[in-house]
Write a protein that binds this DNA or RNA. Structure first.
Lengths: 198, 198, 198, 198
DNA sequence: TATGAATGAGTCTTCATTCAT
DNA sequence: CATGAATGAAGACTCATTCAT
C-alpha cells in the first residue's frame, strides 16, 4: 500500500469521523445549535480542519442526507425481489420504511424533516431515486390487477404520505400514542385495505 | 370609546403585529434563524419593545401554537354536528384538517413540526383537546357499526398519522407531487376504504 | 389638614417606599443589578413615577447614603454625653459603630463600600460630619491625659480604619472568622490598649 | 527559539494584555460596568478573542484574584525568615501588607472588596493560604511570650481587620486623610502596642 | 401625579469562517 | 494536512430614561 493510498484512506476516515460527530450533534442539539467548533472538539481536530473536507456546514448536512438515502434505498432493494404476493410485498416495504425511521431517528428526522426545510442538494439528486422502490412495488400490484386504482404515481405518493406521517410522529412523539407496533400494524392495514380491489 | 379602550386595542394590535411577523419569519427561516431583531425590524419597532409583549422568544412560539390549536379546533367543531353518513362526515373532517394545513402553512408547520421538537407549553395544554374532534368522529362511525376495527383510539391515531404526513409533505414539498387535490382525494379515499367494514 | 399637606405627606410616603425598596434591592442584588424597573415593580408603581421623585438612579443611592449617615450620627451622639471614663466611652463608641454596621449591613456596605467607589454627593456633604463624634471622643481622652499620642486627627483616623475594616469583613465574610463577639472584643481591646498611655 | 515557543509566548502576552486591561477597567468602572467590549477595545482585539483566553467574565476576575494572592504571598514570605525581634517582624509584615495594597490598588480592591462580594473560586482555594503568613508571624510572637493574648487565630484576625480597613480607606479615599505614611505608622503602632505584653 | 409604551445603547456570549503558519 | 488565533456579525435579552397622555 503506497503512501498515496494510506493518505486517501486516512482522509476518508477523518471525513467519516466528522460525519459521525456531526450526525450525532445535529440531532442531539439540532442543526442550528450544533456548531462547527463542537463538532471539531468531539473528534479532537481544530475547526479549520473541517473546512478541508467540507465547503461549509450545509455541505455536511447534505452528505448526511445522501447517506440516509443510500441506506434507505439499500434496505428497500431486497424487498421487491421476493416473488410472493405483491400486496404483502408492498406492506413489507412500507413496514421496512417505518422501521428504518424508528431505528435511525437521527438520520430520518435530519433528512426528511429538518433538511427538507433547507432543500439540500441531496434532495434534488439522490433523494428522488429513493422513492423508486415504493413506486415499483405499487406497479407490481397494479400489474397483477389487485388494486382499486391504476395510477401508480398517485398511489405511491399517497402511501408515502401515510408512512412518512406515522414515522415522524412516532419518532418525535410527546403525544400519548398507543403501543407503537399495534399502531404501525393498524396504519399499514388501513393503507393496504384502502388500495385493495374488492 | 374611552382612552382606556383605545390603548387596549392598540396594544392588542401591536401584539398581533408581532405574532404575524414572527409566524412568517419562523417558517420562512426556521425558528432558530428568526431572530428577535429581525422580527422587530419587520414591524419597525425596537427589539426591546417585543419584550413588553412576550417574556421571551419561546413564549412567542407558544402563543402561535395556542392560536393554531384554537383555529383548528374551531374549524373542526362544526363537522360532527352534521347528521349525515358518519363515514362521509369523517372524510370531511380529515379533508378539513389537510386544507387547514395548506391554508395556514406557517401555523401548521410551526405547531406540528418545528414546535413539536421543542414541546411548548401549548402542546401539553390546549394541544391535546384538538385531537378530540377526530376521536369523536371515529367513535360515531364505530357506533354505527361501519368500521372494520372497534378501537377508537387506534383508528384515530392511525388516521391522524396519515393526514399529518400528507399535510407536511404538501406544504414543504420540493418533491414533484401530482396535482394536490387529486392526491388528497386519493389519500382520503385510501384511509376511508381502509377502515370501512366490507 | 389641607389638601396641600396631605399631598405633601403622600408624596413623602411614596418617596420612602422607593427608598425602602431600593435599599433592599441595592444590597440583595447589588447596585448595578437593581434596576429601576425592579424597584418600581416592588412598590407597584410604574418606572416613570420614580423619576418624579429622583433625578436618576444615582440620586437614590445618594439619598440612602444620607440616611445612613444620619442614623449613624444619631447613634453616636448619645455616647459622648456620658461622664464616665473617657477611654471606656471611646471604646463604647467604637463598639457602637461596629454594631451599627452589623445590624444595618445593607446601609453600611452601600454607603461605605459601594457608594465610596462612586463618590456620591452625600459623602462630600453629610458624610464628613459623621466622623465628628469619633473625633470628639478621642479629644476627650487626650484632654484627660490618657493617650500616648496627642494628635486627635491622627488617632481618630487610625481608629476609624480599624473598626471600618472589622465591620466590612464581618458583614461580607466568607472567611472562617472566630465567633464575632470575641473578635470584636479583641479588636477593640487592641485599639484601646494601643493608644493608652502606660 | 522554535515556532512553538514563540507562539506560546505570544499567547501568554495576549493573556496578560487582557488581564491588565481588565484589572484597570474593573477598578476604574467597577466589575459590573467594565464590559467585555470595553476590555476588547482597550487592547484592540475583537470581543470574541477574549473568549479564546477566558471562559467568561467571571474567570477573568478569578484569575486576577489568583494573581493577587500569589503576589501578596510572595511579598510576605521573606519577612518571617528574619531572626530579629518577632514583634518588629510582625510590624514589618503588616506594613508590607498595607504597602502592597497601596502599590497595587487595582489588584487589592478587586480581590478584597469587589470580588469578596462574589466569592470567586480563587478565594476558596489560593486565598486562604495567604493569611498563613500573618498567622505564623503572630504565632512567633506568642511563642516568645511577648503578647498579652495567646490565641493566635484571634489576634491574627483582629490585626488583619485593622490593616484591611486602613488599606481600603487609603486606596479609595476621598476623605481628607492626613499624610498617609504618618497615618500608617500610627495605625501600626496602635496595633502592635495593643497586643504587646506590658 | 402617574402611567406605560417605547427606545437606543448596551450586556455577555456564540458562531461560521478565514488565513498565516 | 492541520492548526489555532482572530474576527465581524449576530444571538437573546436588559436597562435607564423619556414623553405623550
Amino acid at each position: 500500500m503506497g503512501v498515496h493510498e494510506r493518505r486517501a484512506r486516512q482522509k476518508e476516515s477523518v471525513r467519516e469521523e466528522i460525519l459521525d460527530a456531526a450526525r450525532t450533534l445535529f440531532v442531539k442539539e439540532g442543526y442550528e445549535h450544533a456548531s462547527i467548533r463542537k463538532i471539531a472538539d468531539k473528534i479532537e481536530y481544530s475547526p479549520g480542519t473541517i473546512y478541508l473536507y467540507f465547503r461549509d456546514k450545509a455541505e455536511i448536512l447534505d452528505q448526511i442526507c445522501q447517506e440516509t438515502f443510500a441506506k434507505l434505498a439499500q434496505k428497500q432493494q431486497a424487498i421487491n425481489k421476493d416473488a410472493s404476493d405483491p400486496l404483502e410485498c408492498l406492506r413489507r416495504g412500507l413496514r421496512t420504511y417505518v422501521h428504518f425511521g424508528i431505528e435511525n431517528p437521527n438520520h430520518y428526522i435530519l433528512t426528511f424533516v429538518q433538511a427538507k426545510q433547507k432543500s439540500t442538494a441531496a434532495h434534488s439528486t439522490t433523494g428522488g431515486t429513493c422513492f423508486d422502490g415504493l413506486r415499483r412495488g405499487v406497479q407490481r400490484c397494479i400489474d397483477s390487477g389487485r388494486l382499486n386504482c391504476t395510477d401508480t404515481e398517485e398511489v405511491a405518493q399517497a402511501l408515502w404520505a401515510g408512512v412518512h406521517g406515522l414515522t415522524t410522529l412516532l419518532i418525535t412523539s410527546d403525544f400519548p400514542f398507543i403501543e407503537h407496533n399495534r399502531l404501525i400494524d393498524r396504519h399499514l392495514n388501513i393503507l393496504i385495505e384502502g388500495i385493495r380491489k374488492k
